[in-house]
């Protein structure tokens, strides 16, 4: 098996723009699947709507391209029906945190064994560059021509607070870290959230004078540090990367299996 065997090659080249961070995440996700030897028949990918959600069309797993924001809700139905499936849910920042925000926090709360990969490019790409709940104040977008005044969610804090048992963050620049984190996230029994900061050179980079794809990669290299880095003392605005939460907690499908056991016995 190789990475090429895990994709639907006839749809390549993919539809993403040159230098889009989504491709880098797909690339490294596939390497994890390959290296860990997951049977593609045991994998299900469920996505919503947006640039990032198109990833489900490219992987040769069981795949479901659903509605905007609804991927986690659909995935919950699949997982509860076939608990042995590994269910991966790639989502954009708008998909996961705006229209799908309610599903996101409740999937965290249930601790159902899904792997949510939040591809955060801080913009709605597919619709042409509107601000998202992860854009933050000061960002320029087509719907924030005078700059955004909206505060942003912190995905890591939100997921941790809502009860996810695995929470991590990395960036498209840190490709080996993507692999090491995704490897753990997929193996983790419980709801895992991996936020990956990715560049959207077409809309975010250009509009916000951050440059092209290379400059965005450098931006994520230079504006992030591993959790607890000493550099934070000099610059507390640096974004921390790494695994923030990794705990064993009761998983939803396992708990429901116990309900079934009880219900059958008590009949």
């Amino acid at each position: 098996m190789s990475v090429q065997d895990l994709i639907r090659q006839r749809f390549f080249p993919h539809l993403w723009c040159p230098g889009c961070g989504h491709g880098i995440v797909l690339n490294n996700l596939l390497r994890v699947i390959d290296a860990e030897g997951y049977d593609p028949y045991s994998l299900c990918m469920v996505s919503g709507i947006g640039c990032s959600s198109r990833v489900s069309g490219y992987v040769n797993f069981h795949t479901m391209h659903t509605m905007h924001g609804r991927a986690l809700a659909c995935a919950t139905g699949i997982k509860l029906t076939k608990p042995h499936l590994k269910v991966l849910v790639p989502m954009g920042d708008g998909d996961a945190m705006a229209i799908g925000g309610n599903h996101f926090i409740h999937a965290c709360r249930r601790n159902i064994d899904l792997t949510a990969i939040v591809l955060n490019n801080r913009i709605y790409g597919m619709t042409g560059g509107q601000y998202s709940p992860l854009s933050g104040p000061g960002v320029l977008a087509t719907t924030a021509p005078y700059s955004s005044i909206d505060n942003m969610f912190d995905t890591v804090k939100l997921a941790s607070g809502a009860g996810a048992s695995f929470v991590a963050r990395t960036t498209a620049f840190h490709v080996r870290e993507i692999q090491s984190i995704l490897k753990k996230a997929i193996a983790h029994k419980g709801f895992s959230v991996v936020e990956i900061l990715v560049g959207c050179p077409t809309y975010f980079g250009r509009k916000n004078k951050l440059g092209g794809q290379v400059e965005l990669m450098e931006h994520y290299r230079d504006s992030t540090v591993p959790i607890g880095s000493k550099k934070l003392e000099e610059n507390p605005h640096l974004i921390q990367r790494g695994i923030f939460v990794e705990e064993e907690r009761a998983e939803y499908c396992a708990e429901y299996a116990r309900i079934i056991e009880r219900a059958v016995k008590e009949q």
């Binding site: 809700a73 659909c74 995935a75 139905g77 699949i78 509860l80 076939k82």
Partner: peptide, 10 residues
């Protein structure tokens, strides 16, 4: 949505 997912899962 969960109903859609469950049905597709069989």
């Amino acid at each position: 949505c969960a109903v859609c997912g469950a049905s597709l899962a069989g």
